[in-house]
């Protein structure tokens, strides 16, 4: 039943470009899919209490590695992609291993990863001879408008399908992790590390695996973003602001449910776009003000997020006798 619903949903999504809805709405959808994928990648580790404020680093490494390789030595993004992903995996190990080995958790983990995202941002700015610094950089245009070799497509339909496939892949990974043994190990670790270690869980290795997975997927999202937007700058793909944006969108949508991060992407984008249309370009900062206010309210009153909150409200309605079933985990 669920599988059928999912299939219908995917088919419905896939048929959207056939409806000829126009480039603006298609652009919104692609943006939602790309960010939905990035947010899902973050939540793969974030839901286990591994709150990283450094995912901007992986986003930036992915986007800049591929773009720089293409611009400077003409390496196809298809070959740049594995290099970028490998590099972000390497950074994840270099930072993650000592963190987990020396039990850096909670606030401290968040702040170490925050430092990492700033290191990447400042490195990009400092290498301004090659990266264009704060001005950002544009991937060199391919010879033809639609080039598979350069991973650049002039029509949005093609990119929509690419983003859709990648987004579905992200959800699939989420499900795989959710159904795996590691999930139980990770939940045990997030509750109490010493107790988890005492029942034979290799804490360091388990945490490192999920971190590397999350980092690599985030870097993939960064590459996708760069190839779609065809413009990146240090502020939009790395640093503290984007790292916090990732975390907050996930919280707004719901950290513990599969589609939560995507709902977060829809919510934040809709909020920004509708306010932009209603208020226009003249009033800067109104969308951010409302967004920030909503975030604070969410964390105080609705820590499970929009989708998480809705789902648990629905479950409560479905099963009125509270003693009949043990409380569902998430």
């Amino acid at each position: 039943m669920n599988r059928l619903l999912a299939l219908i949903g995917v088919l419905a999504l896939a048929s959207i470009p056939l409806l000829d809805i126009g480039n603006y709405y298609l652009h919104l959808l692609i943006t939602i899919l790309i960010w939905g994928f990035i947010y899902t990648s973050w939540s793969i580790m974030g839901r286990f209490g591994l709150v990283s404020l450094g995912h901007g680093a992986f986003l930036g490494i992915g986007a800049y590695t591929v773009t720089m390789l293409w611009n400077q030595i003409g390496l196809s993004p298809w070959l740049g992609l594995p290099i970028g992903l490998g590099l972000s995996a390497l950074v994840a190990v270099v930072i993650g291993y000592p963190c987990f080995r020396f039990r850096i958790v909670g606030h401290y983990f968040a702040l170490v990863t925050l430092a990492l995202s700033e290191v990447v941002r400042l490195t990009i700015v400092a290498l301004r001879d090659n990266t264009g610094g704060s001005l950002g950089m544009t991937p060199r245009s391919a010879d033809t408008a639609n080039s598979l070799y350069a991973l650049q497509f002039a029509d949005k339909e093609t990119f929509f399908y690419i983003a859709l496939v990648v987004w579905l892949f992200g959800l699939w990974v989420w499900k795989k992790v959710d159904r795996s043994m590691s999930r139980y190990a990770l939940e045990a670790i997030s509750e109490e590390e010493d107790a988890a270690a005492s029942v034979g869980i290799n804490v360091t290795r388990t945490k490192l695996t999920i971190t590397v997975l999350s980092a690599v997927l985030t870097a993939l999202g960064g590459v996708l973003y760069a190839q779609y937007q065809l413009y990146i700058n240090p502020e939009t793909v790395s640093g503290i602001a984007i790292s916090l944006q990732i975390v907050f969108a996930v919280i707004a949508g719901g950290m513990y449910v599969q589609l939560g991060p995507t709902v977060g992407a829809v919510f934040t984008l809709m909020l920004a776009e509708s306010l932009r249309i209603m208020v226009g370009h003249d009033v800067h900062g109104l969308d951010g003000t409302i967004y920030g206010l909503l975030l604070v309210l969410f964390i105080i009153f609705m820590p499970k997020g929009i989708l998480g909150g809705l789902l648990s409200w629905w479950e409560k309605r479905q099963s009125p006798p509270p003693s009949a079933k043990p409380a569902p985990a998430e």
């Binding site: 916090l244 907050f248 800067h284 900062g285 920030g292 975030l295 604070v296 964390i299 105080i300």
Partner: peptide, 16 residues
């Protein structure tokens, strides 16, 4: 994280 939300709020409010 809640103070991070305040960060966004104050920054955007100052812009506004």
């Amino acid at each position: 994280l809640v103070t991070g939300g305040v960060l966004f709020f104050l920054q955007a409010l100052a812009t506004l």
